[in-house]
């Protein structure tokens, strides 16, 4: 079995939001549910005209971090949130009781209530729609025009993601919490 993760070459992001659209289409996220399953954070340009710090403006795509030590999985009273065989943090909607504890426990704000099922959902790396069919891409990755996202098996030393993590400096979000995210931002 694989251990899937994602690298985000965030400096390539042009904030076209194609990833958000593709994710919504792929996973049936309702219109108006902005910044729910995945999103692009915008760091605005600092300074005052004409002394603008142009390079300070960055776009930061984000989503569920698929933590190896996920607080949302730990707090779930019915194991509705679980790790699948690929290390992906997923939700079994039949078991979700909508106690919302996972929403409070997630340090990355990655969980939201799906208004169709009234259960707490999240990114699952397109496990239902792609990985289960033998594909090894996610909708957001496949659609990204500037190749911000590299998805792959962290346990495979020959995978592109492993190669990038070996050769490029990277960081994870809130590493001090010990959640061990599997989303990596390369510098």
């Amino acid at each position: 079995m694989a251990r899937y993760g994602m690298v985000l070459d965030y400096k390539n992001c042009i904030n076209c939001k194609a990833c958000e659209v593709a994710c919504k289409e792929e996973n049936g996220v309702l219109l108006g549910a902005d910044a729910h399953r995945i999103w692009v954070g915008v760091d605005e340009i600092k300074g005052e005209y004409p002394l603008l710090d142009i390079v300070s403006s960055t776009f930061m795509p984000s989503q569920c971090q698929h933590c190896d030590n996920a607080p949302c999985e730990e707090v779930c009273p019915t194991h509705a949130t679980y790790y699948d065989d690929n290390g992906v943090v997923r939700v079994d909607i039949d078991k979700c009781i909508l106690c919302s504890y996972c929403m409070n426990a997630c340090p990355y704000d990655a969980r939201y209530v799906d208004s169709r099922t009234m259960t707490v959902d999240k990114c699952n790396f397109c496990s239902d729609t792609r990985l289960s069919n033998g594909e090894v891409t996610t909708a957001c990755q496949a659609t990204c025009p500037t190749k911000v996202r590299i998805f792959g098996d962290l346990d495979d030393p020959d995978s592109e993601i492993s190669e990038i993590l070996r050769t490029r400096e990277h960081f994870t979000l809130k590493p001090h919490l010990g959640t061990k995210p599997k989303l990596f931002y390369v510098m």
Binding site: P77, T78, C99
Partner: peptide, 18 residues
Amino acid sequence: GHPVTMMIYNVLSPGLTS
């Protein structure tokens, strides 16, 4: 949100770390 589901899966699938 789903109290009946809670009663069923608290027993069938207990999250002991929760």
